[in-house]
Design a protein around this nucleic acid. Structure first.
Lengths: 349, 349
DNA sequence: TTATCGATTTGTTTAGTAAACACCTGAGGA
DNA sequence: TCCTCAGGTGTTTACTAAACAAATCGATAA
């Protein structure tokens, strides 16, 4: 007896379900419980059943996800790792393939756009890219391809985007330090080309301004490009000053980790000498010594949302460009504490 | 033997189908053959079964739109008129009825929530209400009714909402005046209970802070409740001061119109003595003398979007709560001009 | 008398099937 | 060579069992 190619009905019999159930599992339509679906898929691979062309048109079920190589290895990166995971899983759930593309330089990306890459996908998500200029966005728009920006936005071009609540995050972190009695607060900003980091900084400034304070320029050191942990250099500059702040807001957890290193190296205590708070809540920040007070940004949810909105753009045209902003939450850990002189006297603001 | 009211299961047994089939026939969902459906309907009338939620289920196609009576007459109101128009037209396009409800006081709204109002609608939009407290939101959430907030948000409760880009609008207006060379800028804020107005103010503050400026407290007069054109009173306070600003940001066009009245009354020229910019771009602001420089907020689009998102919440549960923010645009008109002393010397910032 | 709780009824949704359907394919006959 | 028609394959429809949620109704307690 010769082995014949197994059919859908063979799989169904083997997995103790109906052919219809197998079909639904393959096309992940509603009507199969996830555990049943799992059993079916197991059976499929066991019998070596080859699924017919999942989609009539592969282009119609593929989306691009463009990301800087800078944050290599991006998949492992604490922030975009989560975003990518969310995006990809939501895409899969909807029967889409994700064409993940990383690039190094601007011209490389332009090449991509010109070399028919855009014609092999139904939509494109662009993750946090400081180098996306308005011209580039216009060029993208001209292709008529549905595009969504992640953690990036332009106020001159109205493009749908998915963002953390960066302004509120900056505001919350600063506001929290203020509420602990700190008045002398420094901020470690990021490169200006990243709109999300600029928004965070503005949130800090607004929180300060609300209680009648300005951040002195020497407590707002520009980041130097090229250093791996930018916060380290920035913090060293500040520590060297005559007058030191009692608290610091770092624009990202990574910056904070660098800054904490600098503070420790100088022989100061966190939070007693300098309190620190930041933004992101990447996985590491719970395990630093001391653990980091930070503002949680729902990274996985952002990925999911980015796909959902992109999907919507693909299937039903003409909607209103929206900034989709997900909520942030302050996570208080050990790196923040009351201002020293105030805590001793029991004063408060 | 006493006749009892027949139930869905009685009908099902009598018509030789499952209760689910009866249910589908009643709600004409796909999944029942027309002849089966006919038999079911026949049985229904034969047994005298009374269908609960009538015909095509009106509840499923009605949404509530809750709005303060304060902004009377709301339909005519320059801001919410547009929002309501957008919401209603989008609802109509989708076959929904809009149950527009205005109320006066907090307790009146609570009555609404308790008196089964929430059970007569499939979803609820709540327009800009400063009196929506977190408790109230929690109460709303408990009803499990899909809810969307318009021009209002809480950072403590994660509820989907549709907002203008208030922060950016405040930032843009202020930034523009700064770019004209003004340094002495006053801001006319709104009541703190309106989160959208607070956000606008924070945008102003951030723009100022970015160039190292704070708004002096005497140039930031709290609004007095009870006056019809709040800006009028606020501006009078400022004009009476020894040192007057060269420019003013009004938190809304209505405030600006009041402020312009006060400036004119005092015998000063706009924009030569005091420049003014604001936020909203209501219809009137193009026809004031001088016409008003303002930041456009796409009001109609907000209404459309609010319905779209609410519709989505109704039809597919479990999505991520998002702040949906529509883009703003600066509209330069006559009420803004360069700072007088600077324009004469040709200095610029 | 009025709340409160638990059990039961009633309506709704989910996860599944049987059977029909549409489409291809290939062997057999004119 | 062409037709055709049986049967295999994937897909869809019409329906159900069973779980679930919401409303209702008593009994009981406050």
């Amino acid at each position: 007896m010769v082995k014949k190619k197994p059919t859908m009905r063979d799989v169904a019999r083997e997995a103790n379900v109906s052919p219809a159930a197998v079909w639904m599992a393959i096309h992940n339509k509603p009507g199969v419980a996830s555990e049943t679906s799992q059993r079916i898929w197991e059976t499929i691979s066991r019998l070596g059943y080859t699924v017919k062309s999942v989609s009539d048109d592969p282009v119609a079920h593929t989306v691009g996800l463009l990301i800087e190589k800078g944050s290599i290895p991006a998949i492992m990166d604490s922030f975009y790792g989560d975003v990518i995971r969310g995006f990809q899983s939501e895409a899969q759930r909807n029967g889409y393939h994700v064409n993940l593309v990383m690039y190094d330089r601007v011209h490389e990306r332009l090449d991509l756009l010109r070399n028919g890459f855009t014609r092999s996908i139904a939509g494109l998500a662009v993750a946090n890219d400081g180098d996306i200029t308005p011209d580039m966005v216009i060029e993208l728009k001209k292709t008529n391809l549905p595009v969504i920006l992640i953690e990036n936005h332009l106020d001159s071009e109205y493009i749908p985007c998915v963002l953390g609540d960066n302004f509120t995050a900056g505001y919350m972190a600063t506001r929290y330090l203020l509420s602990l009695g700190h008045q002398d607060i420094a901020v470690l900003p990021g490169p200006e080309k990243y709109s999300s980091l600029v928004d965070r900084l503005r949130g800090c400034m607004a929180a300060m301004a609300e209680v009648g304070l300005l951040i002195p320029p020497e407590w707002l050191p520009k980041p130097l490009s090229g250093y791996p942990l930018k916060g380290y250099q920035q913090m060293k500059e500040i520590i060297a000053l005559d007058r030191r702040p009692t608290a610091v807001v770092a624009i990202s957890d990574k910056t904070a980790i660098g800054a904490m290193e600098a503070i420790r190296e100088f022989g100061l205590q966190i939070p007693d000498d300098i309190a620190i708070a930041s933004i992101d809540n990447i996985a590491e920040s719970a395990y630093t010594r001391p653990s980091l007070t930070t503002v949680h940004v729902p990274k996985m949810e952002m990925g999911i949302l980015a796909f959902q909105r992109l999907h919507h753009l693909i299937t039903s045209k003409n909607d209103i460009p929206v900034k989709n902003i997900v909520y942030s939450e302050l996570i208080v850990r050990e790196s923040s504490g009351p201002a020293r002189n105030l805590s001793l006297t029991g004063d408060r603001i």
